[in-house]
Amino acid sequence: MISAGIVGGTGYTGVELLRLLASHPEVRVDCMTSRGAEGTAVADLFPSLRERIDLIFSGMDVDHLSRCDVVFFATPHGVALEMAGALLAADTRVIDLSADFRLPDTALLARWYGLTPPDEAVFKQAVYGLPEVNRKALRCARLVANPGCYPTAIQLGFLPLLEQGLIDPARLIASAASGASGAGRGAKIETLHCEVAENFHAYGATGHRHLPEIQIHLERVSRQRVGLTFVPHLAPMNRGIHATLFGFLREGISEAELNALYAARYVDEPFVQVLPLGQHPATASVRAANTCQLAIFRPQEGDTVVVLAVIDNLVKGAAGQAIQNMNLMFDLPETMGLEALPVTP
Rank of each mutant, 00 (worst) to 15 (best):
E132L: 06
V122C: 07
M336F: 02
V27T: 06
E219S: 13
P104M: 03
V307I: 13
N290L: 08
N290R: 07
E269N: 12
H24F: 04
G148E: 05
C149L: 10
P212E: 02
P232T: 03
T304F: 07
V94M: 00
P147N: 12
A284R: 10
Q155A: 06
R28Q: 10
T10F: 04
Y150D: 09
S178C: 14
K188C: 13
T191H: 01
H193C: 11
G78N: 10
T244Q: 14
G85A: 11
E219V: 09
T291W: 05
P169I: 03
A121V: 13
V226I: 10
A180T: 09
V94K: 00
L109C: 04
E38C: 10
A80M: 11
Y266M: 06
T75I: 04
D303S: 14
R67H: 15
G39T: 10
P276K: 12
V274H: 02
L277Y: 09
H280V: 15
A126Q: 01
L332N: 01
A288Q: 14
A197M: 15
K188F: 14
V7I: 13
H201Y: 13
M326L: 13
S175E: 15
V7F: 05
E334S: 06
G9I: 07
S175K: 14
Q321R: 15
I95W: 00
G204A: 09
P160T: 07
A84H: 01
L172K: 08
R223T: 11
L261C: 00
